[in-house]
């Protein structure tokens, strides 16, 4: 397996992840009906519909990974909608800034790109770990990716570990009290349910990572 990732691979992986998320709209709505207002699936669906539209209209001949991510970020930030737009949008935008204008990136640069993704979400949402949000999925996933890359593990192995960490991060939200959004008003009653935003983040990351190495 090559330890570099090219523009076309990033593009097709984003496409695969967006399609996977859209296919699970009903599952996210169901999760949200337990502690929210049942619209998380709709929100994810409209956000990633916009991602796919941005991908279709992007000039792929430029082969600019950072530019691609920034165009996606811009598109979903400015399309409005629920909080998912600015959060994922800022994530993609900062990931693009971190990735720069290269056509091919090394795994270390992939780690930097994913760190940018985390930083964008953190900055926009002002979130911390343990607040029962998407952040509890993405932070351990990117940490696991970074650790695996630093210790020289093959890319596929690193991706598997990152996806596994995303999944346990998502599961960990079950025991948390919600501190954010509508579900935060439930207090103790938010315990026992997986946070819908952390579930969609797991689906996004695992589909993206899987596609990067397949």
């Amino acid at each position: 397996m090559p330890e570099t990732i090219d523009f076309e691979r990033v593009l097709s992986s984003l496409q695969a992840a967006a399609e996977k998320l859209r296919s699970q709209k009903d599952y996210f709505n169901d999760l949200d009906s337990q502690i929210g207002d049942s619209d998380h699936g709709d929100s994810i669906d409209s956000t990633f519909k916009k991602v796919l539209e941005s991908l279709e209209s992007y000039d792929t001949s430029k082969r600019d990974i950072g530019g691609l991510l920034k165009v996606i970020g811009r598109g979903i930030i400015l399309s409005g909608g629920a909080a998912m737009g600015p959060l994922y949008g800022s994530g993609f935008f900062e990931a693009g800034n971190a990735a720069g204008g290269a056509a091919v990136i090394h795994v270390e640069e992939l780690v930097a790109m994913m760190r940018g993704f985390v930083a964008g979400i953190e900055k926009r949402g002002g979130v911390k770990l343990g607040e029962k949000t998407m952040f509890d999925t993405v932070v351990p996933a990117v940490d696991a990716l970074a650790t695996a890359v630093e210790s020289g593990e093959p890319l596929r192995e690193a991706m598997n570990k990152a996806s596994a960490a995303a999944e346990s991060g998502m599961q960990s939200t079950k025991e948390m009290h919600s501190k954010r959004g509508r579900s935060s008003r439930l207090g103790d009653r938010s315990v026992g349910y997986v946070d819908p935003g952390s579930a969609s983040m797991f689906v996004f990351l695992s589909a993206f990572f899987e596609s990067l190495v397949t």
């Binding site: 811009r74 930030i77 400015l78 909080a83 600015p86 959060l87 949008g89 800022s90 926009r124």
Partner: peptide, 11 residues
Amino acid sequence: DLMNFGAAVDM
């Protein structure tokens, strides 16, 4: 307001 203005300011 912070989220939407913040995102717009970044752009």
